[in-house]
Nucleic acid binder design. Structure first.
Lengths: 177, 177
DNA sequence: CGGCAGTGGTTACAATTGAAACCAATCTTA
DNA sequence: TAAGATTGGTTTCAATTGTAACCACTGCCG
């Protein structure tokens, strides 16, 4: 597994050149220290584990579960409202909703005031599932957070906010440079 | 931002109610505070921004770029070695490699000692691209990290390690419960 | 009213991803 | 050295996801 035999610790002095021309060569990128990469690996590990748990027990995908999580707290939302709350896109919401309806986890009713809108709610069954799944989710959260100290938990919270804001900037203002 | 109003700090003491019936209702889950969700949103934002940058400038996908990043530091790896280094799976590596070869970014040569293995390396062109893309990646990294203090950067580093280890446990020991 | 821009939501299609089957070479062991 | 197990890597097929086009309805403006 962890055979780091080839890990050349030090900044690769490929040739041991004294020649300044060599200065053009950029430092190597250490992928395992590269934040975007680490975030991606971490997020995938966590999401996959949880997705397995949800699907094994409730036959729910993550997008579907997210929709339920929001509807559990905020009844009578439309799909557009969900888009706003979840940072998922239209299509993902639409698909999740249609699965949930097929499973009778949520109900859909027309909004008489605006007949384009559809008002969504957890069904009896859906609330049932919701109430069993929330503790499960919290258990995962607690287990993750349990590996951190109280200080670290607070730090993480504010760090994530900052990184999120910066990444959001990228999307808005266009990319760097 | 940091509104912890509903954070019931203590381990949910489900009892303590005057009306036991009511005890059945779980606390709502606040998706926007749920770590797996936040990680996923953050990671996606970051990855998408960077993927755009790479593909716009070098016609590279993220998996392909990762392969190049590793080969830039460690020449003469096989696909299996790459699997180990990148936490990507066989198939993803195989696909990335075949794209990179088509683009003449890497070369593939048979390993005479073991004719199943193929030894991979950056081509001239590939190293060229590598040397231009590394600074770009570092720029993104710096920009992200720039939103944090030096302390926070260190904290983040160790927090990620801890979370990663915990999530890894899940995968190994099987899920919680 | 009549048209036309904007919104809510779904459908259709292409690209990406994942899982399992697969081929070929090597290693093991009898 | 032959048979089965293992390893390196690719292919195939299904599921997931993203993008763009689309339909139905509303709201606005002449």
């Amino acid at each position: 597994m962890t055979n780091d035999t080839t890990n050349s610790e030090t900044h690769s002095e490929t040739g041991a050149f004294s020649d300044p021309i060599d200065a053009v060569r950029p430092d190597d990128l250490r992928l395992e220290k590269f934040l975007p990469y680490r975030l991606s690996v971490l997020s995938n590990r966590v999401s996959n584990a949880i997705a397995d748990a949800y699907s094994a027990r409730f036959d729910l995908t993550i997008p579907a579960w997210r929709v339920m999580a929001i509807l559990g707290r905020f009844p009578n939302l439309s799909a557009a409202d969900l888009v706003e709350q979840t940072a998922m896109d239209k299509v993902a919401i639409s698909r999740a909703v249609s699965i949930l309806i097929k499973n009778d986890y949520i109900t859909r009713s027309e909004d008489l005031a605006d007949r384009r809108r559809q008002v969504l709610n957890l069904s009896e069954l859906g609330r049932d599932v919701y109430e069993r799944i929330v503790p499960l989710a919290q258990q995962y959260e607690n287990d993750l957070m349990g590996s951190l100290s109280a200080d670290e938990r607070n730090q993480l919270d504010s760090i994530i906010e900052k990184l999120m804001a910066r990444a959001q900037d990228w999307a808005n203002r266009g990319l760097i440079d």
